[in-house]
Simulated scan of single mutants.
Amino acid sequence: MFSYIININILTKPYADISKESNHEIEDEVLLSMGTIFRCESVEYLINGDFWHVKMIMIDDDNDNDVDHDSKRQILNDIQQKPILLMLGKFVLETSHNSDKAERYYRMFLESEIMSPWDKCEAYVALGLMCKNKGQYEIAIEYFETIIDICKIHSIENEHMNREYMTLSYVNIAEIYTITDFQKAIKTLNTIIELHLYSPIELAK
């Protein structure tokens, strides 16, 4: 179910109440102009009603404070290329910082039929970082090690993505070990250097 919130102070796009003209007398219908833009405010699964509720808010297309043009292009690109559950997890995490809800989306995504190993890595990165921030270090390390295993299997498919996720995983594991086991942290940092993911000078920075 979609809920649309209309800001009556936005005057760039005309709209009108057509309830009196509608064939459905009990409905409060509003006619919107073509090109009216709404921002997705939240997406929530309502267990009691057994349906998804999507809340949309009208934004001013001419107001760069709402959504800048680069963000619009990025959103459109994500919609075209990213799986919806992966997008929902990222959206919830970035907008509401609700890690529990975001985690649910990421887990649902990982349980689906996933085509791209890099999308799978993105989900595991998010889960790993959430666990790391919560102090759940052992679980976080398991997620990052899973990413490393995926990268080893698909190393020749995309060298850039492989290097990016391998580096991110090893660095996060090393950071966790600096808290829990300094010797393992040193060992992990040496692995990063041996794999030429970072040079000693870059790590020192």
Rank of each mutant, 00 (worst) to 15 (best):
K120F: 10
R73K: 15
K205S: 12
L32Y: 09
L46P: 00
F109K: 10
F91S: 11
H196R: 09
Y170W: 14
D119P: 08
D50W: 00
E44I: 12
I114T: 15
S71D: 14
A126P: 00
L31T: 10
T178C: 06
V54E: 09
I201F: 03
D50E: 08
Y137Q: 03
R107G: 01
A123H: 08
V30E: 08
P117C: 08
M108W: 02
N77D: 15
M108S: 10
T188G: 02
L168R: 14
K20A: 03
L88A: 04
K184S: 13
K184T: 10
K13M: 10
E44R: 10
D66G: 01
S19C: 00
V54R: 04
I18M: 03
L197G: 03
I75T: 14
L85F: 02
L11A: 07
A204F: 06
D100E: 13
I10E: 10
G49K: 05
H160D: 12
K20T: 04
M34C: 03
I176T: 05
S33N: 14
K72E: 15
T95H: 09
T146M: 11
L76Y: 10
W52Q: 00
S71L: 15
E44M: 08
C40E: 14
K82D: 08
H160S: 11
L88D: 01
I193G: 03
S42K: 13
W52C: 00
E94Q: 07
L11Y: 06
N23P: 04
I75D: 15
N9F: 11
D50Y: 00
D62T: 13
R107N: 08
E29Y: 15
L46W: 04
M1A: 14
L189Y: 12
L32N: 09
K132I: 06
M58Q: 12
Y137V: 05
C151V: 09
I26D: 11
A126C: 09
L32M: 09
E122W: 01
T146K: 11
I6D: 07
K132T: 13
M115L: 11
C131I: 07
I192E: 01
N172L: 05
L168F: 09
P14Y: 02
N23T: 08
D50I: 00
L195C: 02
D68R: 04
L86E: 01
D119F: 14
Q74V: 15
L197K: 03
N133T: 09
Q183Y: 07
F51C: 07
L189E: 10
N65W: 14
K82T: 13
D78P: 07
S112Q: 10
K82P: 01
S71Q: 12
D78M: 08
R163P: 02
I26N: 07
A126E: 11
D17M: 03
D149N: 09
D78K: 11
